[in-house]
Amino acid sequence: MIPYAEVIGEPIAQSKSPVIHGHWLERAGIEGEYRRCLVSAEGLADYLAERRADPAWHGCNVTMPHKQAVLPLLDHVSPLATRIGAVNTIVRGIDGTLAGHNTDAPGFLEPLRPLLAQSHLLRMARVLGTGGAARAIVAALADAGFVLVLAGRDPAKARALLDELAPASGGLEHHAVSLAHFADPTDFAFDDRQGLLDLVVNASPLGMAGQPPLAFDLSHMPPGSVVYDIVTHPARTPLLDAASAAGLPTVDGLNMLIGQAAKAFALFFGTPAPREDGDAELRALLTA
Rank of each mutant, 00 (worst) to 15 (best):
G171V: 05
F182H: 08
A168H: 12
A125V: 02
R123Y: 03
L172Y: 00
L196A: 04
L161S: 02
F190Q: 08
H120E: 04
G170L: 04
A142T: 03
H120G: 01
L161D: 02
D198Q: 10
E164K: 12
D163E: 15
H120P: 01
F188D: 07
A168N: 13
T186H: 08
G145I: 14
L115E: 05
F188Q: 11
K157G: 01
N202A: 02
P185V: 06
H174S: 08
L196E: 10
A151P: 11
A117W: 13
A166P: 12
R153A: 07
A180C: 04
A189Y: 04
F188T: 11
L122G: 02
V149G: 04
R123F: 03
R153C: 10
R153I: 09
A189M: 12
T186S: 14
L148K: 06
P155N: 07
G145Q: 14
R113I: 13
D143G: 12
N202I: 05
D191I: 09
L179P: 09
G171T: 05
D198N: 15
R135A: 03
L112W: 09
Q194R: 14
T186F: 06
P167S: 05
D163K: 14
F146S: 10
L197K: 09
R113Q: 15
D187V: 09
S169W: 01
A136S: 15
Q194K: 12
I137N: 00
L150Y: 11
G129T: 07
L116W: 14
E164S: 14
A180L: 13
V149F: 01
A180R: 11
A139T: 15
E173T: 07
P185M: 07
P167M: 12
A117T: 10
R153P: 11
L165D: 00
G171E: 07
D184H: 10
A136M: 14
F146H: 07
A144D: 14
D191W: 14
L128S: 04
F188K: 11
V177Q: 08
F146E: 05
L150N: 13
A189N: 10
